[in-house]
């Protein structure tokens, strides 16, 4: 199973052993699992990530707003990834970044320079009309914008959590999301 998910004590634990959320070519299907609920109209998803262990440099995890739960659905994902530092090959710091698919027929997009972060870190995506804003925070109060982008999603979408670990053949990548909040705008 590419993704396993459990819920206990108010926390979601996701274990990913394969999959890949594509970003370079948006006509390639994602191979990911998604733990989701519905969100109609404007709103947001926010979660506090307290654990991000054993993810390969091509692995990642985060919160996602997604138009359709099928391989080529439009999405924005505010995520953590393990990055490779050129001068420090043994160091694999965690960074906050995004991936998204704006159109099935076009090139995808990602933040070119992800920001290095330390756990815990809060991730958030807000939707207002067709505008999607991904942010992260070290304390749940002060937010730093990762990306704001227009994505033509329908009125009823899914909000949730995802994780993937493309080359994690020997180990699961484990991520814990605490205090997950999906809110519909008033």
């Amino acid at each position: 199973t590419p993704l396993q998910a459990t819920f206990a004590d108010g926390k979601f634990t996701l274990q990913a052993d394969s999959g890949m959320l594509f970003f370079k070519r948006s006509d390639e299907a994602d191979g990911v699992g998604f733990v989701h609920r519905s969100l109609e109209g404007d709103g947001s998803i926010m979660a506090k990530v307290t654990k991000f262990d054993d993810f390969h440099v091509w692995g990642g995890a985060g919160v996602m707003l997604r138009d359709e739960n099928k391989p080529l659905g439009l999405y924005m994902c505010a995520m953590l990834e393990t990055v490779h530092v050129k001068d420090q090959p043994d160091q694999h710091p965690i960074a906050a970044s995004i991936r998204m698919r704006r159109q099935v027929s076009n090139e995808g997009f990602r933040v070119q320079r992800p920001d290095q972060v330390k756990l815990p870190v809060w991730l958030k995506i807000e939707r207002q009309g067709q505008t999607f804003r991904s942010s992260y925070s070290p304390d749940g109060k002060e937010w730093k914008l990762l990306k704001e982008m227009e994505i033509p999603m329908g009125p009823k979408i899914s909000a949730g959590l995802t994780a993937w670990n493309r080359y994690g053949k020997t180990k699961f990548g484990t991520v814990v999301f605490d205090d997950v909040q999906v809110r519909k705008a008033p």
């Binding site: 819920f7 999959g19 699992g33 609920r37 659905g73």
Partner: peptide, 19 residues
């Protein structure tokens, strides 16, 4: 069981696989 089938994680939350 089909590992790609959707299943409930906790009330209101569903795990789906696609791709």
């Amino acid at each position: 069981a089909d590992p790609f089938a959707s299943r409930s994680v906790v009330a209101g939350w569903t795990l789906s696989h696609f791709g």
